[in-house]
Design a protein around this nucleic acid. Sequence first.
DNA 1: GCATTCATGCAAATCGTTTTGCTATCCGTT
DNA 2: AACGGATAGCAAAACGATTTGCATGAATGC
Lengths: 331, 331
Amino acid sequence: MAKPTISDLAKAAGVSVTTVSHAFSGRRHVDPETRRRIQALAEQIGYHPSSAAVALRSGRTGTIALASSMPFAVAAGPSRLGFLMEIAASAAMSALTRNLALCLIPPHPSAKSYVSAGFDGVILVEPMRDDPVLAHFEQRQTPIVSIGTVPDRPDIPAVDLRSRDTSSLLLTHLEEQGCRNVMALVGASQRTSQIESRAAYCAFAQTHGHAPRLLALDEEEGEEIAYRATLAALRDDPRIDGIFAAVDAFASGAVRAAQELGRRIPEDLRLVTRYDGLRAKLSRPPITAVDLHLPDIAERAVELLLDRIDGKPRMIEAAMPELVPRHSSTL
Amino acid sequence: MAKPTISDLAKAAGVSVTTVSHAFSGRRHVDPETRRRIQALAEQIGYHPSSAAVALRSGRTGTIALASSMPFAVAAGPSRLGFLMEIAASAAMSALTRNLALCLIPPHPSAKSYVSAGFDGVILVEPMRDDPVLAHFEQRQTPIVSIGTVPDRPDIPAVDLRSRDTSSLLLTHLEEQGCRNVMALVGASQRTSQIESRAAYCAFAQTHGHAPRLLALDEEEGEEIAYRATLAALRDDPRIDGIFAAVDAFASGAVRAAQELGRRIPEDLRLVTRYDGLRAKLSRPPITAVDLHLPDIAERAVELLLDRIDGKPRMIEAAMPELVPRHSSTL
DNA sequence: GCATTCATGCAAATCGTTTTGCTATCCGTT
DNA sequence: AACGGATAGCAAAACGATTTGCATGAATGC
């Protein structure tokens, strides 16, 4: 009844465990006839190598982790959940095709009570400056790569999300649509995407002589805070004719505020956002956004991590983000 | 440089490995003073027990898996992704608080190329009749529980999703809102939720003397197929004044079709759906749906699995689903 | 003063693999 | 007949923890 071990199988096949091991791994030659017999027998008695034993011996657990320092299930809403989970789903697929399992690691809710499971490596999603999760895994000497560069840590291999390019794409689009007073709703966090969005907006405003109006909001407060901020801003300055929202939840809030004030989108006010998730797609009107090619990015991150584990770190740039024009900014 | 092992630590502390082990596990008494010294030293040299070794010795990997036989990243759309990922996020949290890691297992895209990692148990999400994933893990003798009962397998512990109750809730609501000709858009798959939805609708139609109009559609085709089916149905029978969509993507498609035909929602046509995801919330008008209490369900599933692993299988019913009335069905 | 218990710690077996030497056989050359 | 080189297989040593049984010294009871 107990799960058969390699020596059970060896005994049944009348050979030594060594031979069985080689028969499966192919690290040494074994007689094709014996191999067939062994494999048939393995199938029959339902033998599967113990992953724990393999892990102990080989040093590889066959498991990688996907971690974020942002709460997975923020009560605030499924905004970030979308971004993260889209990556998770893709990464799980990529991992699987390489015969790896992908673990989801929510941030430590209760201090440092971290999981004890051993991972061959970790993918960090948009870590912030001095990210505690990063510190945790560094201390454990677990190989790390990140999606989105780590601020001030050029030594950590990363798939660059190209947030500067993304921002340019959106801002240029607004400019081309005739906007002359663009307001920015950007996250206040110390993540590369938001840092670069802020910088890109400032540079843009300066270059084009727009009056800079940059609102840095707490991402955790999501739609609600953006709603209130936009309401106030639009009242304060009626000339605003474009909104650049670096977080999709912010865009939702802005839409609500605009509609409440009777501003027509896109006629009076044009709106664009960064992440092309369900929110942007289902909004009325649908919101112009950027396709970041998340599945592709997840795939690259897994690949990068594998290289990293084998000791060949390198940087990777994501494919160039693409604008997805919708009715929130253009007719 | 290499990761310190328990014997490194023992040597450094001037005690035997046994003592170190006991100092951490507390399975036997060790002098409080020695224990303190050991722990301080462990901290200092950065010792962490090898999870592989622990797994081998104890037979527990500290990892559970969440598996679905539906494609995680269906190009078709983020409909199912939302449902699954909402569970995944919650389950990951629940697992973490019990010091477990949660692995995501997409269905085998390439035949039986399955991950070799060992799991202490698996949570199956809405498995279908004769689910191949179920068979796979059963063959490996991995403890299994499922979210949503397994058709024809009352022996598998499950968190019952109460799809019959959910359907009643929605259908009764439509009835109360005055609908007399309710059409149903239900998945054609052999999953309990869809099987029960179909049954519930038929019973309902019979009891209330509605003309039964049940459309069983392929869930993988999502919004598009529902759009076309609804278009045809509404043209064919203009008396239809209510739609019961058992899949949220179907609801989206139905809304599109209705709007295209100039049917006002909810004045001319009332619409309800089962899963209260982003789709239902962001739709215009927002769609009446049911709160299934997914985080709670995920939590229970983890708990159930843990019991199962310890050999005490049992069934669990989810909390009673709750109706979330919105403007798609009521003013 | 001797037997008994308790507190503390150690050595060694064990979990199920992979990998490294080593042996034995067989074949074809010289 | 001796030798080199495949070929096929085995025994045993890791990997890093947990756990069992045993040993020591001190404290306690009579």
